[in-house]
Structures are given as C-alpha cells and as structure tokens.
Computed example of a mutant assay.
Amino acid sequence: MEDMPESSLVGEVEVEVEIKAPAEKFYEMYTGKAHHVAEATPQNVQACDLHDGDWGTLDSVIVWNYVHDGQEKVAKERIELVEPEKKLVKFRVIEGDLMDDFKSLLITIQVSPEQGGLGSVVKLHFDYEKIHENVVHPETLLPFFVQMIKEIDQHLMSEE
C-alpha cells in the first residue's frame, strides 16, 4: 500500500470466517475448482468461467456471474498471486460492475488450518481505491463473501 496515495479513496477491509472444512479443500475450491463455486452457493454465484489460462494459475482470467444486493453482476478477475504452501490466492478485479465504483480492487483469500486440527479459518481481505469520494466502502461485499464461504464450507463437508 506504500505506493498508493493516502486519502479516503484508498482503503482495506477484511473478515475472518471459521469453517469446518480442511484448509486444503477450501483453498482448492477457489483455485483449481472455482467453477464449482456456483454449485456450492447458487443463489450468490450463477457461473464462474475460465476466460484465459488454467484454473488456479498465475495470470489466469476468470469471469464470475453473481448476485449482490439483489442485482445480477459480472466481475472479471486476474489471478495475481498463488501460494499453495500458504493456501493464499489474490484476485485483481479488471472488468465488470465493481469497476463502476473502484479504480482498483484486490481480493486476497488465505485459508489456515485451525489450531488443534479441527476446521480452518478463511481470511478475506480487500485492498481498494474508490473512483470518487461518494462511493461507499466495500463493506457490503463482506457479508456476501461470508455467506459464500459458509455455503462452500457446507458443500465441502457434505461431500465427505
């Protein structure tokens, strides 16, 4: 964040969600099997399509069709970082409805095994820059993602 201008246009928000699924399974859902997210949380995500590259690889481009605040939306994202050993992936939104409000939006997802080996913790982090002062901060995206994370967790646990 050092190279971004300091202003109320730039910010970050994050949330942590405890899940029952193993960290590896959840991480794999967002990297190698992102196209299965729509099966796990169909009221939030209608489709996830690979536009360029390979699932879960650097510089791959993924298009998400989703519903947020009751409205159908689209987001095109490029994978900027994949660190399987840390179960960390970063997606940069490069096109779509979110770009109406943000100059930049970087979504980081990291999954860590829970201490004691039961379940995991999903950390979701947004770094963003709004296009102008009147744009609301992306806090409304947090409950949306928390619901998705919980439904993906239920889906993964029902597979066992």
Rank of each mutant, 00 (worst) to 15 (best):
M1K: 11
M4C: 10
M4N: 07
S8P: 03
S8L: 10
V10G: 08
E14T: 07
E14Q: 15
E16C: 09
V17C: 14
K20C: 10
K25W: 02
Y30L: 09
K33W: 05
K33N: 12
H36V: 11
H36K: 15
V37G: 01
A38C: 06
A40T: 00
A40C: 03
T41M: 12
T41K: 03
P42V: 01
Q43L: 12
N44Q: 13
N44K: 09
H51K: 15
H51A: 14
G53F: 01
D54C: 09
W55N: 04
D59E: 11
Q71K: 10
V74W: 02
A75S: 13
E77G: 05
R78N: 07
L81Q: 14
E83C: 13
E85D: 15
V89S: 11
D97K: 00
D97S: 06
F102V: 06
K103G: 07
L106Y: 03
P113A: 06
G116M: 02
G117L: 08
G117E: 04
S120G: 03
S120V: 01
S120N: 04
V122T: 11
V122R: 03
K123F: 00
L124R: 00
H125T: 09
F126H: 11
H132A: 14
E133H: 09
E133L: 01
N134T: 07
V135Q: 09
P138Q: 06
E139R: 07
E139N: 12
L141Y: 10
M148D: 07
I149F: 10
I149A: 14
K150A: 07
E151D: 15
Q154N: 12
H155R: 09
S158W: 02
S158N: 09
E159S: 13
E160H: 12
